[in-house]
Write a protein that binds this DNA or RNA. Sequence first.
DNA 1: ATCATCTAGTTGCGCGCGTTACTAGATGAT
DNA 2: ATCATCTAGTAACGCGCGCAACTAGATGAT
Lengths: 356, 356
Amino acid sequence: MANTTNLSRPAAVRQRAVTMKDVAEHAGVSRTAVSFVLNNRQDASISEDTRARIKAAVQALGYRPNAGARALASQRSDWYGIVTEIVTAPFAVDTIKGAQDQAWLDRRFLLIAPSDQADAVGPNKGMEDAAIEKLLEQRVEGLLYAATFHRGVHVPQSAHEVPTVLINCFDIDGKLPSIVPDEHGGGRVAIERLLKAGHQRIGVINLDPIIPASVGRLAGAREALAEAGLELDPELVVTGHATADGGYDAACQILDRYPEKDRPTALFCLNDRMAMGAYDAIKERGLRIPEDIAVIGFDNQELIAAYLRPKLTTVALPFQKMGALGVQTLAILTAGQSIVANQQLVDCPLLERSSV
Amino acid sequence: MANTTNLSRPAAVRQRAVTMKDVAEHAGVSRTAVSFVLNNRQDASISEDTRARIKAAVQALGYRPNAGARALASQRSDWYGIVTEIVTAPFAVDTIKGAQDQAWLDRRFLLIAPSDQADAVGPNKGMEDAAIEKLLEQRVEGLLYAATFHRGVHVPQSAHEVPTVLINCFDIDGKLPSIVPDEHGGGRVAIERLLKAGHQRIGVINLDPIIPASVGRLAGAREALAEAGLELDPELVVTGHATADGGYDAACQILDRYPEKDRPTALFCLNDRMAMGAYDAIKERGLRIPEDIAVIGFDNQELIAAYLRPKLTTVALPFQKMGALGVQTLAILTAGQSIVANQQLVDCPLLERSSV
DNA sequence: ATCATCTAGTTGCGCGCGTTACTAGATGAT
DNA sequence: ATCATCTAGTAACGCGCGCAACTAGATGAT
């Protein structure tokens, strides 16, 4: 789809930028020589002397390459694009950070486009497509498509025109490669930590049971328990709304259902926001964390986990790693090679703080 | 400064993109005609008929303009750059969002570069400069430089080569225009809200007293009190570390210092994290919010304010608005016009929730 | 019939750069 | 002295596009 923007707005008056031609004249050589030196080409022979003269001219004039022109001539932009919900997303920045850092290492540049995938069916439907369109107009060589919670997504058609990697989500329609957190492993790790601390009777505050996060984490939890010869008591699993209030309500249910001796000694909250509410329920009952009840969360939502009192032990979602791995995967794909697996799992590490 | 990246990496094999030439041939017209139609130029005359043929060809071939080539030819990129600490910053995203949305309205594109300004004196010193350098290589027409907490900054020299606007910070060295929150007004608004609820004896949990946020908010608070014929009791102002723990400690001090009848009935916490800690101190003492003690925060750190129980009434920092205003200001500057004021203040609105 | 004007386009230059093909001179081998 | 080879570059093309300058034909006025 072409756009039809009118470019006839008056340009700002500003002095012309220094070009290679200027550098060449200043150094008394041809523009080609400058190009060879700047691109550090081994096949061209330029004497040490003129090489130095050229570099001096670059310094003296403050020459700065024009990335657009370079991309035009070389037919490669060294740019990747990332599409993500930027604002509603406390996590999006971590993904971007991871991708950005890796891109930097690879001498590439990351273009970030906003999208409101959440309303993908709503009024902003067009915005995401337009964002991708814009990125393609910049001739990005590959796309990262990141979601803020693990789920299946429909990727706009235009994203298929360049190598695309999904982060924290997977392609419902097709075969686009994806990178997702190892929810299952994260569930294991959380329970193993509680078992190690001696807890046997563990309550679970669950998320909406159909989302991948819930399915995976619970399965992992069950597996870890099974290996210890234990089972997850279905009565101890209560589903809450994925907010602090939801966590509070769920925790109340669990805590109030049993006399003290049968009460679970630990709570596995499937996200940190619910853990935040659970804290309130526990404190309200005069119980101490972790002495009376240990709490373990999931997500490592810094602002919550690190500031709760006591600080929340939780399982981290590896956003930075996923972002970095996304760029690495893209690098492989854009080089025309094929990748190992269509879906890559990234570990969810345990973050020890003080609530267990 | 020129970079000397070697571009000789092998490019991915991919079919050539559709160009204007292809469209022109397909439509049986000259390339210029296509350009005129796509740019919607009024001064050129193209019949309705060929205009339609060209548009059809664009559709048929899936033509997409090459932004780089367009920028090269037109000498305007339509890009702005924004430099900000992306990861350590819960707020950075809001600024970006505001700027991004405004840029979108203005048919411009926002390039985001990371920077770790916090360690500007440390090992990452070079990174910020490099990031700006990269943006300038992309020929951005203007720069936004955003900080995550209101402060004075030193802006790298290269940022002076294009119009630059500072957001949430101000230029220590020079005269770069800036956009900052109206801390003073925010302080007023917070206190006025408490006064309206009937509170007269108000405790303040202060930030480091030398930072602009503290200075402004306190001054505003004093002014509001003065207008009600009241004064801020110096004993009721305690400075805490800007964390939940700091807020807890400070709140304990205030709450334990007085017998019940002399205890303040409201707490103005100069940031939400400290309010989070204050909540704990209050609840620990069996007091209710807001019945026994009202709490008002500052910053509107969503993840905290909206999830505390009861939800925290707080004064919002207008990051989105500042971002948007930044882009608008940049638009004025890049158009060669001059702006009204060198420093623009943006209102900090009160966000009513349930803690007052 | 002649000239001016308008319509509907086209030709061609240049943006800044990467790159291929060429060359003038120096050096070495025979 | 002659030819091949090497050194140290240079000339020229094209990437995709915007834009100023031009043109061929149609229309209208005198």
